[in-house]
Amino acid sequence: MAARTLTINGTLISARSNETVLEAAREAGISIPTLCHLDGLSEVGACRLCLVEIAGSPKLQPACHTTVTEGMEVQTDTPRLKAHRRAIVELLFAERNHICAVCVASGHCELQQLAVEVGMSHVRYEYLSPDCSVDISHARFGIDHNRCVLCTRCVRACDEVEGVHTWDIAGRGTNARLITDLNVPWGEATSCTSCGKCLLACPTGAIFSRGSTVAELERDASRIATIVAARNERW
């Protein structure tokens, strides 16, 4: 595996030739905000939070989906990128009904953490306040669509790691909703193995274990990567 050298924010770093800019940056201790990325899952480049500036490219590129090249010059933290990231996080908060004070994930929530990271002091956009349902038909888990950010981490964890594909998305645009099987209540989704990987993967309090209450939901999303790594080692 050949090595590549590149600069991120002016610092020279080295990376393996098949690494993404995101991987190389994190290895070098440079933080790039992400939401739809989760170690161990495929990249979809959907949240647009990891967009970076690359010298010579007029378009911003998602760090999670861009492979390093020799001599690449990357900027991850310019005022332009900061403004975009803050706007995207604000748009997410305005899209559904995110009320930290009554959320199981408060204090352990990636969306909440992102808001702090990007310096979101208030939301400039109109709250859309959509009418979202809560599905607690499953014996062990529940999903509160009010808190879903449509990152599809649960969809990919279920499909790629558990190999089941219980989860998917129905509908278009802001009307898109997570569904189980062919849009039946989760408890009736016969394909679900109740493995809980979707729960591990969820960045917010959207998917929760039943019985947990405000701020109780702590989970370790890195277990998905551990499972994948363990399988790769053994098989």
């Binding site: 647009r48 950010v149 278009r172």
Partner: peptide, 17 residues
């Protein structure tokens, strides 16, 4: 707005705003 697929956040919610 109606035709946005909903995958990326800027298009999905930005068009609504």
């Amino acid at each position: 707005m109606d035709e946005s697929c909903g995958k990326c956040i800027p298009c999905r919610t930005g068009t609504v705003q």
